[in-house]
Design a protein around this nucleic acid. Structure first.
Lengths: 214, 214
DNA sequence: TGGACGGTTCGGCGCCGGCCGAAGTGTTCC
DNA sequence: GGAACACTTCGGCCGGCGCCGAACCGTCCA
């Protein structure tokens, strides 16, 4: 089973899927730099292994991570790997952008994610264990969080910061809200995100301390 | 990095080390059914990869898991694997014993571990998020738990039950206490454990509901 | 000071699996 | 209907890696 993630090409594909979107087979082939036939075989194995789910539509085959648990497993494993410094100016810039803030499947990670978590902790919305407190639930509902969703939040080990951050339903909700309100913006098509000026204002308006440096 | 766990021999070795003890190179070779030279190479790679730590003593080389995080990663990955039914009566018996109750590195897992967790939840010792509550802390201290230890408990995804159970300092403390008081006993030299009759009495004496079936 | 023993290093064997290109299937668009 | 396109299947190549046995190095014990 671990063999599924052992291959560098498959790992690259899963890593790309961590942006939470569904990719087409061709896109993954381009991204991974291998032939379409190779990707096809890999995808079949990953789907059979339960790591990915597929969704066929016309002549396209869309694949996505099978769920948040897969994303969390991936980031947890990445936290193990040897911290290889990126080679080249361009790679270093990309790496720095990712470390600053990024999406992790459906929630925020990187320094931005950690800042959000610690801010929520200061506000008393979540406990030190990343459980949502009762006042925190009220606070979230005011923002539009549906209490019918699973109340249980989840910790997700941050790949760059090596610190847990907020995942689960609440993490996904806040990330979506940040996007909707234009508080964060993707850098190109990557997973990296930046806090916009509106985002900084919103950050303060929520009462969150310590606006993260841009 | 994931390649370290991809090989079945290395996986078997790590799996054996999940009992929390330090094994010698020879024992692992016997267990895995490969030559000593092969094990030696595997161990070197696993140690370099940070999954294992070694401790040389005389002509022996003891290896153990590098920490609880490794154990949790292993069980989390095992929870993914296809539930292969064991082949043969003997294998089925072993599997059943493991599912009933076992140690997971330094804490309890299996149905016994899950029963413990839910019992602690009913008592209000831990929250639904497996965080230790304030009354829970008092409760644990009465049993001899050192509050100086990290208060943060950890969730560990149970391999057989697919449900999180109590790991971390509190989980390790309770498991050690159960052993000391003779409430649980290892079956042979395996990770599987059984609740003794003293254990059943103790279970009730603690006020835990639902004594797990023997 | 031998011999037994645990562990390591090295050379070589064999298999597994990732990769590609070519041919084939189904879909969409003109 | 035909052409372009996304994807799949198949055969074959090749590199990597797990495995072993043999030789070697230290440690422990008589």
């Amino acid at each position: 089973m671990a063999g599924l993630l052992a291959d560098s090409t498959r790992a690259a594909m899963c890593w790309a899927l961590l942006d939470g979107r569904a990719w087409t087979s061709r896109e993954l082939a381009l991204h991974a730099g291998v032939a379409a036939s190779t990707v096809s075989e890999h995808l079949t194995r990953l789907v059979e292994g339960g790591l990915l789910v597929e969704h066929r539509q016309g002549r396209h085959r869309y694949v996505a991570l099978a769920g948040p648990h897969v994303a969390e497993l991936l980031e947890a494993m990445a936290a193990f790997g040897p911290r290889v410094p990126p080679r080249g100016l361009r790679a270093a810039a990309v790496s720095e952008a990712m470390a600053r803030g990024r999406t992790c499947y459906d929630h925020l990670a990187g320094r931005l994610g950690v800042a959000l978590r610690s801010g929520l902790g200061d506000l008393g919305v979540v406990s030190a264990d990343l459980a949502i407190t009762e006042p925190g639930e009220v606070w979230l509902e005011k923002l539009g969080f549906d209490p019918g969703e699973r109340r249980r939040s989840r910790a997700c080990l941050d790949w760059t910061e090596r610190v847990p951050h907020l995942a689960g339903a609440a993490g996904a909700f806040l990330c979506a809200m940040f996007f909707e309100r234009g508080w964060i913006r993707r850098i190109g098509t990557s997973r990296a995100v930046v806090l916009t000026t509106e985002g900084e204002q919103g950050w303060r308006a929520l009462g969150l301390p310590g606006v993260p440096a841009a």
